[in-house]
């Protein structure tokens, strides 16, 4: 049986933990709002880019001279799996969920006899993946120095990936991140970066003509040159979008995790308080019995 002092100390310690988780929850909530605003602000650019890409992709992708970024380099032996996770923990199952989704895909690729290389964004995913696939991780991109994610950060990552693609390090690149749905739900998502998935272009002839509003465009220099210019940008934009979603998801997951931690701490305090009160009463009763039995003995 713990002494009264022990119980008091435990209650105090749980209470201070609760204060910390409460504070973290509020910080996550305000960061989440900022991350959501950033994701929203980035939407117009991505939407317009997609519209144009679709309109152009249909007309150019059938040609032999189309950029390898669009049609691939003719092989799919080596996959580059880019896993975007967070730099900090204490965000519930956020990182594990992304890693699990990536792991499922990697195992499947390995079973198919493909070569898999991994590029980590954020150190939390690296720690987990390194346990399963030692030696496959090419590099980890450290995002801890970045306070507010900017497009340049994403563009730099995209450039790295493009350079690796040009050097023939890999044939296909897929990106794993968590799509933000709500503070409660984040969906681990797989997205193909290189080559640009044709499914988005193909079968959307209607959208394509929609994009131009039915008008016939004049192109300068020409469609192909424009597409060649846009494709690398598109990779950057996709990475940027994914990282923004990921940032929002991370804060959402942290907020939820900290909320339930705060609630758990509250439950724990209630239980401990009951035990504390019982113990206190037991001690008083014991003392009374001692006094009475002492008096009776006289």
């Amino acid at each position: 049986m713990a002494s009264l002092k022990d119980l008091r100390d435990r209650i105090a310690s749980v209470r201070s933990t609760q204060k910390i988780t409460q504070a973290m929850k509020m910080v996550a909530a305000s960061k989440l709002r900022r991350a959501q605003e950033a994701a929203e602000a980035a939407r117009p650019y991505a939407e317009r880019m997609e519209k144009v890409m679709r309109a152009l992709g249909d007309s150019v992708s059938t040609q032999d001279t189309a950029s390898p970024l669009l049609v691939g380099n003719g092989k799919d032996d080596t996959y580059l799996v880019i896993v975007a996770t967070s730099e900090r923990g204490l965000c519930g199952g956020f990182n594990s969920n992304i890693v699990r989704a990536a792991k499922r895909r990697i195992d499947q690729l390995l079973a198919d006899g493909k070569e898999v290389k991994i590029l980590c964004i954020g150190k939390k995913g690296r720690a987990q993946l390194n346990r399963f696939y030692p030696g496959r991780i090419l590099d980890t991109i450290d995002m801890s120095g970045i306070r507010q994610l900017g497009f340049v950060d994403a563009a730099d990552i995209a450039q790295r990936v493009r350079v690796m693609f040009d050097e023939g390090v890999f044939d296909v690149a897929v990106l794993f991140y968590a799509r933000f749905q709500s503070a409660l739900t984040q969906i681990p998502t797989e997205q193909q970066l290189i080559p640009v998935p044709l499914a988005e272009h193909g079968g959307s002839a209607e959208d394509a003509s929609d994009a131009g509003g039915g008008a016939i465009y004049e192109y300068e220099p020409d469609e192909e040159a424009i597409l060649d210019d846009l494709l690398p940008r598109n990779v950057s934009v996709q990475v940027y979008k994914a990282l923004l979603e990921n940032a929002a998801s991370e804060q959402g997951a942290r907020m939820t995790a900290m909320d339930s931690a705060t609630r758990n701490a509250g439950d724990l305090i209630d239980n401990l308080t009951i035990v504390y009160n019982r113990t206190r009463q037991a001690v008083i009763t014991k003392e009374l019995i001692e006094i009475i039995s002492g008096a009776e003995a006289l």
């Binding site: 131009g212 008008a215 465009y217 192109y219 300068e220 040159a225 424009i226």
Partner: peptide
């Protein structure tokens, strides 16, 4: 500032894309 020279856009310009 288009790739192949500057171009001015006025109201009613024809549909046009340029890098």
């Amino acid at each position: 500032p288009g790739t192949e020279g500057e171009f001015g856009v006025l109201p009613g310009h024809a549909p046009f894309m340029s890098t």
